[in-house]
Design a protein around this nucleic acid. Structure first.
Lengths: 193, 193
DNA sequence: AACTTAAGTAAGTGATTACTTACTTACATG
DNA sequence: CATGTAAGTAAGTAATCACTTACTTAAGTT
């Protein structure tokens, strides 16, 4: 158990509360109490509630994790590679669940700039998948690999969304593994046939 | 252009504002102004902000639409059937975009009862798909039809989420058609092989 | 003409919000 | 020992919030 700095304790408390009750649903007094600091300290460090919010988003963003995931792809058979990617993607989402909840509840207020960042990240994931697919595919003509990539990404993200966020199901790790490996097989069937 | 009742005008205004700025981010004064009524009228009709919110959810819920979608399935070839289901699902989501945005921004505060309603709806969709699949499938052993149903539902929902909510892309109807028909082919490949 | 209904206006309630000011305490470092 | 730093306390600001009261207006309906 590390001792967190005052600043970090406030960020952690704000992160959790914003993800649970949204930006407008959380008061600064509440954040301060959850962090065991006085509200004055919160304002001394962050100035305004909004800049605290920005610091939370900056500190807790999922984007570096996903960029790392793309970078760290290993060289296996196609099936192993897709399966390990699927797991990494799923568990990255799980570990960043609170961030994703904040993203969803604040999604309408995002600027062009933030939307563009997400756009590029999604494009990168799809491009990586297409690159992997095209290295291994047998003869296929009538299938657009980019659409298969979108489908793969979509299945996994939606599995996360349904189980972890909407229904809050306690699904076992082996069930997840089974579903993800089935998803990989669905994709493989579409690439090689 | 229909003339809406005062009550309906308030519900429409609240629906839009809640979907754009969330429950806590929207004030009753704002709703009244958007509906061109006095705030007093709003409270006379709905009593509290929360019961107005409940009326909005009741009136605008996506659930009856999805139940109708399940009921109205037609008898075509497997490919046609899945394709028309995919389109109906996608465009139902699009027409209920605001409702889905409210759902997402308020998802943490849902009760067991509401979660159960969604759980049952999702189960019904998957069961319908499994029933359709199993009527048409050729010999297959190593594939769990329920997982294929989840995959299909996930691809389509995620397409909607990415294009319509996260990135707000203006994607053409023919592009959607193309992607959805590709998704159907991915699924068909997994059922018959 | 009398009455009902659906709306409005004006004013104000107490609670809560983000944020500030002024002063204090405790501790670590030179 | 003196000083700087990071925190706290107490009190209060102006604005906004959901919601209320009291009274009025306009348009049917009986």
């Amino acid at each position: 158990m590390e001792k967190l700095s005052t600043r970090d304790r406030i960020i952690e408390a704000a992160y959790t509360l914003f993800s649970e009750k949204g930006y407008h649903g959380t008061s600064t007094r509440e954040i301060a109490r959850a962090a065991s600091v006085s509200e004055v300290t919160l304002f001394r460090i962050f100035g305004t509630k909004e800049s605290l919010f920005e610091e939370v988003l900056k500190t807790k963003s999922i984007i570096p994790d996903l960029v790392a995931m793309i970078r760290d792809v290993e060289n296996h058979s196609l099936e192993d590679l897709l399966f390990s990617l699927a797991k990494k993607f799923y568990y990255t989402l799980v570990s960043k669940k609170k961030f994703i909840m904040i993203t969803f509840s604040e999604v309408n207020q995002y600027s062009e700039k933030i939307i563009d960042i997400y756009q590029k990240l999604i494009d990168q994931i799809d491009e990586l998948l297409v690159k992997i697919f095209s290295k291994y595919k047998s003869t296929n003509k009538d299938f657009n690999l980019k659409i298969i990539a979108m489908a793969f990404r979509g299945m996994i993200f939606n599995l996360f969304l349904t189980n972890e966020i909407l229904l809050r199901k306690n699904i076992t790790k082996s069930e997840i593994t089974h579903i993800l490996s089935s998803y990989v097989k669905i994709i493989l069937n579409s690439i090689n046939r």
